[in-house]
Amino acid sequence: MIGKTFQRRALATALLAASMAPCAHALDISNADFYKCVQGDCRNGQGIVHDMYQNQMLEGNWQGSKTIPGERYLVSHPLTKGKKYEQFYGADGLMDRGSQIRGFGAMNIVPVFTGSFGRMDHAFMRARLAVPYEGVYALGNGIEYRGRFDYMPAKGTEAGRITMGHIIFYGDKVDLEDNSKETGLFVSNSAVVGGGVVMFMPARPDYMALLQQQYHRDLQIAVGDFKQQESEKAWRTAFAILGQVALTMAGSSGGGGGGSSGNRFAMDLVSGLMKNATAPEGSNTAAANADPSTRLIQMVTGAALGKVTGDSALSNSLAKAVASGIEKSNAAGK
């Protein structure tokens, strides 16, 4: 029989199979890269889905490849040895209540949170998550945390890439084997990735102050991270447009020569992007409401098209090429 002390130490030091996905995004199982229907009808009916990323099975009724509010779903994992846990989802597709298997540690220990879930907007992921709110977090080794939970977002290496955050707890830490209880404030000893294992430690004033300061510093840094990502998105779109336009210009007999016109178009686009031009006055509402990279591309390509040619046929072909480039860029970015 493995000793309790060794078992706990192994759990704390083992490499954890933490999910890189957010704590609980809206559950849409239509993405074949992450979900596989292994039994029944997983689109509009009763079916069992294999979550390939977390190696979990989820069974229940599906509508449009999504969870149905109020329906009961059962989740299991090979390490749960046949045991299944209940889950219930809200109208927003996020978990309302039930049990969430939180990664796996050493010695086949299965940590599980059971209770209610709250909603929070992750400042560094620009996404709404379902996070533990009130209930019991059982480590699977005889230690349980019973009480109120909160989630504090963390930036990680770069905002918008991986969902990370610290979990704060106030309530009772119960040792079922020793029949003892400790009441107080606890905090995860490091930022938790996705739905990974949480290891709590007693909260200290200096550590909490450090987390608070780090959070506010990261908020400022995240602004730069998101600006860089928007810029990268604009350039991906620009490259896709250039490729489509080059093909169109090369196959055209009008417009003053495909090569020279294509070169002028390409440099107008690149120049506009490098100089970070802004949308012109009088832009329509749809353009004004578009995301920054799309609005920039629309403005730059519109100006370039006007300079390239007076040939209406070629102009229409180029407009289609631009639209095709944007569509391909968006598809590649998903």
Rank of each mutant, 00 (worst) to 15 (best):
C23G: 08
L273S: 10
N44P: 10
Q244W: 03
L15S: 11
L139I: 02
G224A: 05
I109S: 14
A138G: 11
D218N: 06
H50M: 02
A323M: 03
D121A: 04
P22C: 04
A321H: 07
G262D: 03
T248D: 06
A24S: 10
T163Y: 10
Q228L: 11
R204T: 15
Q39N: 15
H25F: 07
G196F: 04
A234E: 09
I48C: 05
E177G: 09
S260D: 03
F124P: 03
T294N: 10
V198F: 11
E158Q: 15
A321Y: 05
A304Q: 02
P22Y: 09
F34P: 07
G243V: 02
I241R: 08
A203P: 08
D28K: 13
D172M: 04
A304G: 07
G47S: 13
I221F: 07
A14Q: 08
T5H: 09
V245R: 09
V38M: 08
A287E: 10
L15V: 11
L219M: 09
V223M: 04
A123T: 05
M20G: 10
M164P: 05
G142M: 01
A17F: 12
D225E: 09
I109T: 15
V270D: 06
S231N: 15
F6C: 01
A159E: 06
D311H: 11
A266K: 14
P205T: 06
Q213Y: 13
T163H: 11
Y170V: 00
D172K: 12
A303S: 03
Y85M: 01
A32L: 03
Q220I: 01
Q87K: 06
Y207Q: 14
R217F: 09
K84V: 02
V197Q: 14
A234W: 10
M52Y: 08
G184S: 08
A18R: 12
V187Y: 12
N55W: 07
M274K: 10
R217C: 01
M20C: 02
M125L: 03
R72M: 04
N289E: 14
G70N: 13
R217Q: 12
A250V: 01
K181E: 13
G93Y: 11
L176R: 15
M199R: 12
F226W: 15
D218S: 04
A21M: 05
R126A: 00
P280D: 11
A288T: 14
A12L: 02
Q46F: 07
D175E: 09
M267D: 13
N316C: 02
L247I: 03
S180P: 13
A18I: 01
G93V: 00
M120K: 07
G184L: 01
A32T: 15
L94M: 05
P69F: 06
E59M: 04
A18Q: 10
N284M: 01
Q87M: 03
A277S: 06
A279N: 13
H122R: 08
G118E: 08
K320Y: 09
T183P: 13
R236Y: 13
Y35R: 09
K227L: 05
R43D: 13
S293N: 10
L27R: 12
R8N: 12
F239T: 03
L219W: 06
